[in-house]
Amino acid sequence: MCLAIPGQIRELLPDDEMAVVDVMGVRRKISMQMLVDEPATEGDWVLIHVGFAMSKISDEDAREQLRVLEAMGDDADAQAEARGYAFGHAEDESGGPAS
């Protein structure tokens, strides 16, 4: 229902809690007001929806997901057993450093 897309923060603007983000070479000013609890900095990746940053993207969790996907099909049962398959519970909120 809601189109949201990752973009990288290029520049934090001093006024209005705004920032310039870059989505594959397209730039737009967006509001950072929803990230007041967990401020993002230049270079961070955020999820963008209707001109607002919704959440920070965790590079660590993204890589972890890719690792799980890559392991699929090889020895699916073993890796799933080891991993429990579900990552992302209350204790591991995303927000790790983005590269």
Binding site: M54, S55, Q65, F87, G88, S94
Partner: peptide
């Protein structure tokens, strides 16, 4: 309930929002 989308989705969502 499981969270597949951990890279962008904290379990608790966004309290400020």
């Amino acid at each position: 309930v499981e969270n597949q989308y951990a890279r962008a989705l904290p379990w608790d969502g966004n309290p400020a929002a």
